[in-house]
């Protein structure tokens, strides 16, 4: 972990982009009925600047895809790997590929969330931290939120994406920071689920 931390200290946000190059293709699921789609988390430039100022970096890890736009910010694409969900009835669960590494470059502390999922029951993006089996609610859609369905394709778009209070407390405890707060604006969120 200390070597990883050193890399972040040296590279800062640039490391985030470097990780993009490590991203592989989504794990292929050859079953005909497997759901497809993706969740896209957009971290706004305002959030990125605020996080960087406080020494916090969020690193998407494979098989997440990353892109950057100077206007909208950093987009992390998490491929859908499974689950069953009704976005208009607000129940079910979507499992997502990739993981998210949260690092405080000032202290070197980090926490990595795997088994990412969007829980329609909780209406939260959740992840299981290393060393645990219990999902933590991390982020909540906010702003103008819309769900829709066309054929077998369901979509959710949210103009806002905020830190869940439980997630904020967990992250601050793990990273020994006071950066995260419940309701903190991160950016926006969208989810497409085919299946």
């Amino acid at each position: 972990m200390s070597r990883t931390t050193a890399r972040f200290l040296a590279g800062g946000v640039a490391v985030v982009l470097a990780v993009t190059g490590l991203s592989g293709a989504a794990a292929a699921d050859t079953t005909a009925t497997a759901p497809t789609g993706s969740a896209v988390v957009v971290e706004s430039n305002a959030f990125l600047q605020s996080a960087a100022t406080n020494g916090v970096v969020i690193v998407p890890l494979p098989n997440a895809g990353v892109s950057y736009d100077t206007t909208t910010g950093l987009s992390t694409t998490l491929p859908v790997t499974g689950g069953s969900v009704n976005l208009r009835g607000y129940y079910g669960n979507v499992t997502l590929d990739g993981s998210l590494l949260f690092v405080d470059v000032l202290t070197g502390r980090s926490v990595c969330f795997k088994q990412l999922a969007f829980s329609a029951d909780k209406w939260r993006l959740t992840g299981v931290p290393d060393g645990s089996t219990t999902p933590v609610s991390l982020l909540k859609p906010a702003g103008i939120e819309r769900s829709a369905q066309s054929g077998t394709t369901q979509t959710l778009t949210a103009t806002g994406f905020t830190v869940d209070p439980t997630g904020a407390q967990f992250l601050d405890t793990q990273l020994s920071t006071t950066f995260f707060t419940g309701g903190q604006s991160v950016g926006s969120f969208s989810l497409t689920f085919n299946g």
Binding site: D121, R124, K140, P141, E145, R146, S147, A148, L156
Partner: peptide, 10 residues
């Protein structure tokens, strides 16, 4: 109560 309170279906 539903956590999806405020979510709109168009």
């Amino acid at each position: 109560a539903t956590p999806a309170c405020g979510v709109a279906t168009l």
